[in-house]
Design a binder for these strands. Structure first.
Lengths: 299, 299
DNA sequence: TAAGGTTACGGCGATCGTAACGATC
DNA sequence: GATCGTTACGATCGCCGTAACCTTA
């Protein structure tokens, strides 16, 4: 068994079981891959791939399990490369952070502000996407660490932890008639309601809460970030339901704001990274700093 | 980077940083190993080993981390071999079980009785030792799975789970004067007390409990298994404190028995195996059967 | 017929073993 | 001086690329 053969398995999988494509990615001719695969399967004494005629169409039962281990091997090999890279370039490096707009816009600025002071040479790539996408990005090693809510916790191949709790808040201009009511969700239904798109910032929680009152409820306007929602609410399009983090000091000029936690439930933000992935020291630092910062702010 | 080089790191470590010994184990001449090591370190751009003159004396800081990953790679490679082995020999195989006397003698018989019915061709190696040793045996891959109390849980490189709760019991012959008292620990102190050796079957818990009453308390006779203790108690050497599992139906002829859980605390038995280790189906079966059996008996 | 996969063959590079040398205890 | 590690050199083995061939959409 060789590392080349192990990597070949991975590439074949990534290519959708197309050996030609896999070998191309490995910068060798197709026949070389064909031979290596044959050698590997001979050594193991079992076919790793199911074939339709000659073509590869998927893993065998054994293949599935072998593939799992092959991924481990590749991961560890990458880790070794990362270890020496981060050593070579002492305090330099790059953090590929995946997060949602809410975190990027309202939480991370203060974290990053401090981080770049202590780690001036670390580059930052901030990838904004939905929690679901972030989960896939982690698994595909497109990002090093994810900070978001939902989905991420309790995945067995991820290390994750809760960073802080938060709740949704209701916002409306100071003059809005809603402020003359008891602020129940039922009363809110008399006005257009703006909130997050499906999949963002626990919007489902809000939706469920309203649907307990009005089964066919839909938001009137949805956006994927609070800035847009706030802008529209400012223009008196209706009531906004956003994450508490998105309500800032200067928004008090335009809006009143009440928490909705008791009516739609509490939420939480998590961090996560692949469990067997090597984390360079500066990434550990970043996560620590993040946790420490939100602890001060929400703890 | 090659698998050979990775394995070389492992072997050098295992040989106490003696390259000659390591290469010998790998069935190549010493110079071959020397070269491979040089190549690896050149490729990484960092020395993996600290040297005193030319001799290897330990890992560098980078080396430590690389070594961690190297172990992962070796583990995964072994797993692949195990996967195909267990496939080749269908229902054959071997379970190397590490456990304590208490489990082996009083719990496992009923488990194994059933297991060999459904898996007649699986060989069993039962290694008896203290929990602490079992932990090391797991890490050295001397055993596949451990069943015991203490120590094992909450180790990050182990997968472990609680199997059942139990408590210590006090035993003494029917005619013993202790049965005329209120059975407090304080009253027990008037008699010689026999229990487990340090490190076995949560003996520390019992010791602590007695020491709360009598600071300088020591057991009068200790043994590493309940059979010995029971034999001595039968001969009227004193009171016995053993695990509840060790008190069997036929012992009622000779002893009375009272639980001590409220006085010395409850205990639990766990199972554990290396977290990244491939478990063949029959090993999964074994653990399931074990859990199921103790659930019926204690659950 | 094009695309995916296998097999045969020749060349080249990688690794090995021998052996001589250097360093350390 | 014995043990441990490095370096040089020639031989061998393994892997690659070319190319011809086979199989199936």
């Amino acid at each position: 068994m060789t590392l080349t053969q192990i990597k070949l398995l991975i590439e074949i999988y990534k290519s959708g079981f197309n050996l030609s494509e896999a070998t191309e990615k490995m910068h060798v001719v197709q026949s070389a891959g064909s031979r290596q695969l044959k050698l590997l399967e001979e050594e193991l004494g079992f076919p790793v791939f199911m074939r339709k005629g000659q073509r590869l169409i998927g893993f065998t039962q054994v293949g599935e399990k072998v593939f799992e281990q092959a991924k481990q091997i590749c991961m560890a090999e990458h880790n070794i490369k990362r270890i020496v890279e981060t050593m070579q370039s002492q305090d330099e490096g790059c953090i590929r952070l995946g997060t949602t707009h809410t975190q990027a816009r309202y939480i991370l600025p203060s974290v990053l502000e401090q981080f770049i002071l202590t780690h001036p040479k670390i580059k930052l790539h901030i990838e904004e996407s939905s929690p679901e996408n972030l989960y896939h990005f982690l698994k595909l090693d497109k990002i090093d660490v994810a900070i978001c809510s939902e989905l991420i916790s309790k995945q067995d191949d991820l290390v994750s932890g809760k960073a802080y709790n938060w709740e949704h808040v209701l916002i409306a201009p100071h003059h809005h008639p809603i402020w003359d009511t008891d602020l129940s969700l039922r009363n809110c239904l008399h006005f257009p309601i703006l909130s997050y798109m499906k999949g963002f910032t626990h919007s489902d929680k809000v939706l469920q809460a309203f649907r307990k009152i009005d089964e066919g409820f839909e938001f009137d306007i949805v956006a994927s970030d609070a800035d847009v929602i706030k802008t529209y609410v400012k223009k008196d399009f209706g009531l906004g339901v956003i994450a508490q983090m998105a309500f800032e000091e200067e928004d008090k000029q335009h809006f009143k704001c009440v928490p909705l936690g008791h009516q739609v439930g509490k939420s939480a933000t998590y961090y996560a990274h692949l469990s067997k992935r090597y984390l360079p020291p500066y990434l550990d630092d970043f996560i620590s700093l993040f946790l420490q910062t939100v602890l001060q702010r929400f703890g």
